[in-house]
């Protein structure tokens, strides 16, 4: 019995970090074909080698790294804030009986509000700065975390609260048991929220032109510098891939400790 369980775990361990990289092979082949048969002078489809030159050029000009850092900063801060607020609100709304009837309409309204539509209002209130970008990103990526946490706490709350009361847990111990039991669901929410947060971060940079990957992309496009556009696209893609790997690495050991889902 135990051996079987251990085996499944170790099988899950293999390849979890490697799989996304291996999966990139078709993309690499496509780029190789593009490189071989593409045209140097095409405005629409410049060769991949030109993309590389374009990215190197941006790097030399000294704007690439600060932009990447700015985008990552907004993104990481947003994920952390969204996780904290989402988990706390999810637990709070999920554990009270009247939580659903009181908050459902509001939550449904807010979570269906397109992030792009919120940008102008946020710009009026906060101005076009990175704080405003942070608010927009948190606002749009908090929902998977909040709703997932709420669903989980509602699923376990009756039995769990009976257990907590019966064994006499109070204060910090009680809170840590509650957080522990929803942790996998919170992390699943983060997994869904992370790519969303990156999208909205770049979107916010598009619209407001605050420095970051998004504003670099917009200015490249406005200058009709298509190799640069493609090059930055690849950079954005790599950032997303990196984010996904980091999230998996953080999530895997915690989810493994909780065992296969019920």
């Amino acid at each position: 019995m135990r051996k079987v369980a251990r085996m499944t775990i170790s099988r899950r361990d293999d390849g979890k970090g490697v799989a996304p990289l291996r999966g990139l092979v078709p993309l690499v082949i496509l780029l190789a074909i593009w490189q071989l048969f593409g045209s140097t002078h095409s405005v629409f489809f410049p060769r991949p080698s030109l993309w590389w030159d374009a990215v190197v050029k941006i790097e030399r000009s000294g704007t690439l790294w600060p932009s990447l850092v700015a985008t990552s900063e907004t993104f990481i801060e947003a994920i952390i804030v969204a996780t904290l607020i989402g988990a706390v609100l999810g637990i709070a709304i999920g554990s009270v009986k009247w939580g659903d009837s009181a908050f459902n309409p509001v939550l449904d309204f807010l979570r269906n509000l397109p992030a792009a539509a919120v940008v102008p209002a946020a710009a009026i209130i906060l101005g076009t700065n990175s704080k405003m970008a942070l608010v927009i990103v948190v606002f749009s990526c908090i929902w998977p975390i909040l709703l997932n946490t709420r669903a989980e706490i509602r699923r376990v709350s009756v039995v769990l609260s009976n257990v907590i009361t019966n064994v006499g847990l109070r204060g910090f111990r009680k809170q840590s048991v509650i957080v522990g039991s929803v942790l996998p669901s919170v992390l699943l929410g983060v997994r869904v929220a992370a790519p969303l947060a990156l999208i909205v971060t770049i979107l916010a940079e598009f619209i407001t032109n605050i420095s970051g990957l998004g504003s670099l992309l917009v200015s490249a496009q406005q200058n009709f510098d298509s190799p640069e556009v493609y090059g930055l696209l690849v950079v954005a893609g790599l950032l997303a891939l990196f984010v996904n790997i980091v999230v998996s690495l953080v999530e895997a050991p915690i989810v493994r400790r909780h065992g296969p889902s019920v």
Partner: peptide, 17 residues
């Protein structure tokens, strides 16, 4: 105090982690 419950739903009453 001094009353311990054993629940039917062992999956959710044990802490998985």
């Amino acid at each position: 105090e001094g009353v311990a419950l054993v629940f039917q739903d062992y999956v959710n009453s044990l802490l998985r982690w």
